[in-house]
Design a binder for these strands. Sequence first.
RNA 1: UGACCCAUAGUGUAACGGUAGCACUCCGGUUUUUGGUACCGUCAGUCAAGGUUCGAAUCCUUGUGGGUCAACCA
Length: 558
Amino acid sequence: MSASNENESNNFLETIIEEDLAAGRHDGRVLTRFPPEPNGYLHIGHATSICLNFGLGLKYDGKTNLRFDDTNPSTEETEYVESILSDVEWLGFKPANVFYASDYFPELYGFARDLIKKGCAYVDDSSAEEIATMKGTPTQVGVNSPFRDRSIEENLELFEKMKNGDFKEGTHVLRAKIDMASPNMIMRDPLLYRIKFAHHHRTGDTWCIYPMYDMAHGQSDSIEKITHSICTLEFVPHRELYDWMIDKLEIYPSKQYEFARRNLSYTVVSKRKLLRLVQEGHVKGWDDPRMPTISAMRRRGYTALAIREWAKRVGIAKRENLVDLGLLEFCVREDLNRLSVRVMAVLQPLKVTLTNFQEDKTEWLETENNPEDPEAGVRSLPFTKTLWIEQDDFMETPPPKYFRLSPGGLARLKSAYIIQCDEVVKDDSGQVVELKCTYFENSKSGEDTSGLKPKSTIHWVSAERAVQAEIRLYDRLFTVENPGTDDRDLLELINPESLTVISNAQVEPALAETNPGDQYQFMRLGYFATDPDSTPDHLVFNRTVTLKDTWKKVAGRN
RNA sequence: UGACCCAUAGUGUAACGGUAGCACUCCGGUUUUUGGUACCGUCAGUCAAGGUUCGAAUCCUUGUGGGUCAACCA
């Protein structure tokens, strides 16, 4: 039964579930659900909820439903349903069932009638403003609606007229009859049904009244016999109403538990704010790799395993939090280090001419695809008289501890030969444009008899054989850790360097065969994924995440 | 001038009332044809004050700090 092992501690939800199981509650079942509203794309916050709900289902030999909370036809669209379905699948989870709250509309309507019959609900003719005013404030009790004491018969008749479309939008609502003086604002006669002449993405024009969250969510849980209904902290005040409904309706006693949603540093996880970034064109779309949406992270090259591992490491609790983006990046590197093929790419090319290498000659050198995985095999690299190396890998006047190439110095070209820099060529402005070097023929990788000990190994590509590529370098979307939590407008906080495009990078010829979604480690630079925009004539790579760069840190201190 | 939720290293998260642990970060080191990876090590924490107890991160009280609640949204 309990899959918990002693090495891993339980979170508070696992503790609750294990107690329930031990006490034989819910017939020993565990049935959770992930209930997105199809009005936007899933983001990293949803990912934690998905991992939590499906993870609990898996851990306790239970099941997890995917249920679309589609009770508001004016904001919900099929496009979102489809993206959510594919995101959940991509993350690696299989719902036991895919349900829609809209499928329960007839049953929910029946529940509403039941409440009326029990004297627990009434039709209110007040306007939205009047209802808001009568609600009172957190520190001031509300007042009863003048329509609160209608007879059951009259309420039934009015509610049916609402359903039949006899009233205009906004003229009538169905409310629960609870307590206008409750310290919990949610319990002050909450709205249950409203009139909306809107086309629903699934039920079309069948209905013109739609249930509110509190009349739909918990009841849907009960219909499905959900055992543990897990939601975020903002729903804590709703739990009292959730339980009230179960009590009055005498339906399956699902239980609601709340956890604190995960906040990620340097980004926002609010549908409203993300929507704004998309609509105002600050990013190129929901799947712009700078976005914290699942589709964007996928495009950028984050793996599902990395995201799941991240969710596991972060854990779950009830306190406010701001998770360091660095942990997500750590998980991404960890997974990509394991699986990605190493290739060489030069982002800022500097020409190197090997003065003692034969003109027009190409020597093919062997290199391993992944040192972490011998099974990944080897491939060949063309080595020629002129090469590109990274501008950062040469310094005319190197600071102490700079190991790379400098005038008169040595460096190993990865999987090739040791070279020595003999001459620095500059243009009129003093810019270094070329290095004239000699290579040591007896220093070939794997059969080096030169006895030379260069202090570093650098990456390179053949200038004659390299392929040009566009590289998109991504950085954090915002300049501050917790954007959107003070008065400053979000737009002021957008990182102007969140995207840097390099159009003339030189990559090794093996990359000409790449396909969208392929992932690589560009040696010494980072992990990169081939973008969907990439074509054989115009290669495009997204930088998923950089490699850890100890030198950059050391150099930055000086 | 209300009700509810929360408070453990920089960050995140553990600890039947019984040695405050783990991960990331930071810092230092070993290995390395990636200044990557791997491995080793250091620094660092119970919001405060009372109370209960042989013993309190844990239970109680008060305070402090943070969050949530007044959409015909979910």
